[in-house]
Simulated assay, not measured.
Amino acid sequence: MPFRQIVVWLLGLAAVALSGNVLWVLWSQGLADSEDLGLALFYCALAMMAWLFCLFGPRLAIGGRAVLKGLLLIVSLGLSLVLFELLMTPFHLVFNSAHQATLHAPQSAKRHVGDKYRFDLEVDPELGYVPRRGGQYAYDRHGAQRNAHQAQKPPGVRRVALVGDSIAAIGYLGGWLERLGPRGVEYWNLGVDGFGAWQELKYFERHGRALRPDLVLIEFCLNDFDGTPMILKDQDGQAVVANLYLGSEQFNPWLYRRSTIYRAYLSLKASLTDRDGLRADVKNALAAFQRHAANDHFTLKVVVYPLMSPYEQWPESYKKQRQDILVILRELGVEHFDATGLLAQALQGRPLAWARMAEGDYFHPSEAFAELLARRLLADGFLAAAN
């Protein structure tokens, strides 16, 4: 059997198998999980297109009028791509180009402000989403989580603004610092679930600067390298937000919102270029924090959180991201505390579950580890600007 026929048979079998996968997804999940169904259709369509090309492409090139047949083949492929794009559009697939999340209420600050307030998010055209503020919500009108302090800073009081993603929003570190630290210091929590470095900067510019902090403490999680947020769907009060794995200069926002094929291309680009541009975006965000610190006369410091696992068990990608953020902070001259060593010491004689907020959670530290971290920061005088 000629080699081309073998390839045609294999691609045909792949197309049949992937068609069966589409039916399986429909039978097992229905339309509830559009991401899984969309991916199944995507791979099925790719296999069908490859099979048809191998089956009919060579025949079109045989015989007379080969140029005309070649043009017809190109036009057919173009129309297939258009149909493919139309078929995939409702599923808003991001592949491996971004971290995708459906807009929902985060489990961020329940332990910090109690259960009587609601934790809802709303679509924001610049940041992707922001927490709802005021009234019945956990974030007050000034943008921080509710606390007992007045927005107008009293004379003689030092104010610390905690900035970050869900690690900050959970409130463990800020709560322990307030309980263990000196009197006359206010802690304001500006952490928002799922935010990356760029979103944290913009949210601080909107709300944090007006609080006139004396110290801004960024609680940096290694997944804060997630890039610019894009809203792919906004219907019935819900949204799908994608934080890209590429720097802001590496993609076209208009195309990203509208084209599945373009997002598939960016997924390949992110994989081949090691998420090009994200390091520069994080550095630019921290440099902007530095400029605000100089203009507003506050001190900027950063706590770098480790993965909640022994260092030797970390994936290489996170070892690199830790190295990247430490290099960035040294280059900018930002005072920082790398908690990796503290975690290693703490795990000597303790089970791994002691350090984690929940079983299998590699990112969020437990309240016990947050207490240990708070005690270490206070003992080292790391928060001197708040004393």
Rank of each mutant, 00 (worst) to 15 (best):
R257E: 10
N252T: 03
L246N: 04
V241A: 11
L232D: 06
L246A: 04
F251W: 13
Y262H: 02
G237Y: 10
L255C: 09
L232Y: 07
Y256I: 03
L244M: 12
L246Q: 07
Q250W: 05
V240P: 01
P229A: 10
P229Q: 13
L232I: 08
D234N: 15
P229M: 12
S259W: 04
M230W: 02
L232G: 12
E249M: 07
P229H: 11
V241G: 10
R258F: 07
D236Y: 08
T228K: 13
L255F: 10
N243D: 14
Q235E: 15
V240S: 11
L246H: 05
A242N: 11
G247E: 05
P253D: 01
E249S: 14
N243F: 13
Y262A: 02
L246P: 06
A242C: 11
S248N: 08
L244K: 04
T228L: 12
Q250A: 14
Q235N: 11
G237W: 09
T260M: 13
G247D: 07
Y256N: 02
D236E: 15
K233D: 14
W254Q: 13
V240H: 08
G247F: 08
Q238E: 15
Q250F: 05
I261V: 14
M230T: 10
Y262E: 02
P229W: 09
A242Q: 06
Y256K: 02
S259L: 11
P253K: 00
G237S: 10
S259D: 04
R258E: 06
L232T: 09
P229E: 12
D236R: 13
K233P: 00
W254F: 06
L232V: 08
M230F: 04
E249A: 15
S248W: 03
Y262W: 04
Y262S: 00
A239Y: 10
Q238F: 13
L232N: 10
A242M: 09
Y262R: 00
L232A: 09
F251I: 00
G237H: 09
Q250H: 13
N252F: 00
F251H: 02
E249Y: 04
L244A: 05
Q235P: 00
R257G: 07
D236L: 12
I261C: 09
T260K: 04
R258Y: 05
Q250E: 15
D236T: 04
L255G: 04
M230L: 15
I261F: 14
L246I: 05
L255I: 05
Q238C: 04
L232R: 09
T228F: 05
S259T: 05
V241T: 11
V241D: 09
V241H: 08
V241M: 11
P229I: 09
V240K: 15
R258I: 00
Q235M: 11
L255V: 01
